[in-house]
Design a protein around this nucleic acid. Structure first.
Length: 457
DNA sequence: TTTTGAGTTGTTCGA
DNA sequence: GTCGAACAACTCAAA
């Protein structure tokens, strides 16, 4: 048997079902196809860098036998099948609409060629189609989805698999270089990212080990404070499958359970919920899940949006977050909520614009989590935050960054502002190299509340 | 079919 | 300074 193994979002050697089961074939061809034809959403700039490094890491694990190709997955697969007399194609089971479309097309094609298409779930702890309410319809609220649909599911997440069997690679001539994929770009940003992240499968495991050893038992409370560094920071590794969620899940099952561990697991549950929602309601990629929000008139001010993107709103905790994003490709979880709430509720800018900016800048930009979380903040999604929940940037900054360490790390120009006024520096009466607030918080809050409450009519 | 209780992360106001 | 209520009603999930 000669098998083609197609990597996509799970760029790892260990616990990778398509590689593991594919390795039982007598000959294998391993390939990554960078497909910008069959997608509605090209990968963002920060993710591109992460992808590049991940592919390098995977290629190394595969003794330099990963074939890098660019173009239409269907056509390329067809060519490879013919050229290398392939009998089986191993592919990651698709859960997103555009991946399902590719899968269906490929399946049709392969049937004609009498080639087997074999798919394994590499991405999720629980398959979205397997979870439903008693009346067979999909959940729309997180808690029952997670408690009943996941934790009480008779099927537990798969146990992690070991490494593949000894791989007998099909030799290829004139193997294209990874640089032909054009992922690296020449953006100076990429060099910055390199200084913040170690990107490889080994690094992912180190991050998990360190999390369990030094952070996990302080997670529930510590996760809210950007300076305490109690978050796992595993998200970009999970996004590109440098580590499997199954591996994480079962490593956590091995240790003593408490509220912290349970809380972390529920965060993995939120990722599942996001994929679940996109699976059952594919339109929410672009459209409000709650239709009544289609009537909402976003203001979408270009200048305010620009100020938000560049971290120049005049609200320190918001600007620190946006500058952290631009500097490191990441934002701490709590600060993400603060900046997102500020964009949507205070600046009255469409969540889709925020989603796009995050998509471009986050190294962990995830097809499902990004959209679902933006809809949650905006109040347009499933089980969404109520419309009157508007984060107050001064309050949030003072509460969760009481010493200002996080704020000052990204806004050193505020270092002389008294700590009590750090989150409202305009009251310090100092001549600062820092913008005045672009809006009045109190006014914008009231405006937002009245605008949102109009929707009820 | 009807009923009941609950729903990630907040803020403000007034006692 | 602390605390509870109001913010708004609706939809969801399950009994």
């Amino acid at each position: 048997m000669r098998s083609l193994i197609l990597f996509k979002n799970n760029l790892r050697y260990y616990d990778n079902p398509i590689l593991y089961y594919g390795s039982f074939s007598s000959k294998v061809l391993t390939s990554y196809i960078h497909d910008e034809v069959n997608t509605h959403k090209k990968i963002g700039r920060a993710s591109k860098y992460w992808l590049y490094k991940s592919l390098k890491s995977l290629n190394k694990s595969l003794d330099n036998n990963l074939l890098f190709l660019k173009g239409d997955t269907i056509k390329i697969a067809e060519n490879l099948i013919e050229k290398f007399s392939i009998n089986n194609v191993y592919i990651e089971e698709p859960f997103l609409q555009h991946d399902i479309k590719i899968y269906n097309k490929l399946q049709k094609k392969l049937k004609k060629l009498e080639v087997n298409l074999i798919a394994y779930n590499c991405n999720l702890l629980w398959s979205p189609e397997s979870i439903c309410k008693n009346d067979r319809s999909p959940y729309k609220v997180f808690s029952p989805f997670y408690k009943k649909g996941c934790l009480l599911n008779e099927k537990q997440p798969n146990k992690p698999l070991g490494p593949p069997k000894l791989l007998n690679f099909i030799r290829t001539e004139n193997k294209p270089s990874i640089d032909d994929l054009n992922l690296k770009g020449n953006h100076p940003w990429h060099e910055k990212l390199a200084s913040y992240w170690h990107i490889s499968e080994n690094a992912a495991l180190d991050v998990l080990t360190d999390f369990i050893k030094t952070k996990a038992y302080d997670y529930k409370n510590g996760r809210d404070y950007p300076c305490l560094n109690k978050n796992s920071r595993l998200s970009p590794y999970i996004r590109f499958g440098l580590i499997s969620v199954n591996r994480i899940w079962w490593e956590l099952e091995k240790i003593k359970q408490d509220k912290n561990i349970e809380h972390y697991k529920s965060e993995l549950g939120w990722r599942e919920f996001s994929y679940y929602l996109l699976y059952h309601f594919p339109n929410i990629q672009e459209e409000n899940l709650q239709k009544k929000f289609d009537a909402f008139k976003w203001e979408n001010s270009k200048t305010k949006f620009h100020a938000w993107k560049t971290g120049n709103t005049g609200y320190p905790i918001v600007d620190a977050g946006m500058r952290e994003l631009w500097e490191t490709g990441y934002i701490h979880n709590r600060i993400r909520m603060v900046v997102a709430s500020f964009l949507v509720k205070n600046l009255l800018i469409d969540w889709r614009l925020g989603e796009k900016w995050f998509w471009d800048c986050l190294v962990d930009a995830d097809y499902a989590s990004n959209v679902a979380s933006w809809q949650w903040v905006a109040g347009t999604g499933a089980d969404a935050a109520p419309y009157f929940r508007i984060f107050n940037p001064m309050l949030q900054g003072n509460k969760f960054d009481p010493k200002g360490e996080y704020t000052l790390r990204f806004l050193p120009e505020l270092k002389d502002v008294p700590i009590k006024l750090l989150q409202n520096p305009w009251e310090a009466g100092m001549d600062l190299d820092y913008p005045e607030p672009i809006i009045n918080y109190k006014d914008s809050r009231e405006k937002s509340l009245s605008k949102y409450s109009e929707l009820k009519k």
